[in-house]
Design a protein around this nucleic acid. Structure first.
Lengths: 169, 169
DNA sequence: AGTATCGGTTTCGAAATGAAACTAATGGAT
DNA sequence: ATCCATTAGTTTCATTTCGAAACCGATACT
């Protein structure tokens, strides 16, 4: 079973999407964060078809995002848990949730509120620069290709000047 | 053309994925951030089929993520630009890129380096609590359903205790 | 007149998805 | 002992989506 296009890409976003970009994948991971661990948990919460769920769980395990763990022997039954790799998807999910909150919230408002326990306040999740701590905005960021990074590009157009996610030569 | 399952969901992540969760959608948005604006830009950079690209651009415009803007009259030609809603996807893309960098980088290493111009340093993008500024980690966050938020749930199982993305009652 | 560019649409075979039925191992109730 | 329920799938088959290639329409270039 292959994910995405199967092509090697120089872009980490494309590579990430090859692993978690399929129809149900991020929703499944979301449910694991939310406490779902068993086949039927996912099925009931998401309304996903059994065969598709089965396939997605398998690829998530293959890719190392989830771990399949037996919780009883007779009959053999399994739970799915986040690996460190899977746990590290938290910022992606939170960012996505924030975006959905800001732009797609229904009349009833934001369904989920996050409380940051160490400081005790409602967390407005924010993407910041790890160095100065300020918010990381597209306009303030210059992206450049690492020299000799990735596979040789098919489209030389790709290496151009700019900012944000655009790659400077 | 419908996106996702079409079901109303209480989860902002699911709603976000209904808009940007299809196979090519985030890759297209990524390319807009990277400086691609025209049909053939996307096609050449992504290697996506014309009909699919056409459909994705249409739904992105319909959902308000991209704006279709004529750049000449004869013959009529169009460019696609980020709306504020689209621009606000930046943290999602950066988070995804970070994850891809950390877990899927090839031998050649991380292809793209981000420089935060205000502080002049390489940005390690980080998700933080907007209140205290500390890193926002799953273990430190308690999620709770807003009272009366969202549509009535089909699965009462969904309202349970826990932390992270799990919804406390 | 012929070719190239740009932004698509149409057509059609291939692949992915989804609903439903079925399997397999076990426990509990009658 | 038989029947039903639970859990975690697999199999089958119809529907939907995707993708490659051909085509279209307006314009410019040679």
């Amino acid at each position: 079973m292959q994910s995405g296009t199967g092509r090697a890409t120089a872009c980490s976003i494309a590579r990430a999407l090859a692993v978690v970009g399929e129809r149900w994948t991020l929703s499944i991971v979301r449910e694991v964060f939310a406490g779902a661990h068993r086949f039927d948990d996912f099925r009931k919460r998401l309304g996903i078809a059994r065969n598709i769920l089965s396939a997605r769980l398998r690829t998530l395990v293959e890719h190392g995002v989830l771990e399949r763990r037996a919780y009883q022997q007779a009959p053999p039954r399994f739970e799915y848990h986040l690996t460190p790799m899977g746990n590290d998807l938290y910022p992606v999910l939170v960012s996505l949730m924030g975006w959905g909150d800001r732009w797609l919230a229904g009349e009833a408002g934001v369904p989920l509120t996050l409380t940051h326990r160490p400081c005790g306040h409602a967390a407005q999740p924010e993407l910041t620069c790890g160095h100065c701590g300020d918010a990381l905005r597209h306009e303030d960021v210059r992206a450049r290709l690492r020299l000799g990074a990735g596979s040789p590009m098919k489209n030389p157009d790709r290496a151009r000047h700019g900012r944000g996610l655009r790659s400077d030569s």
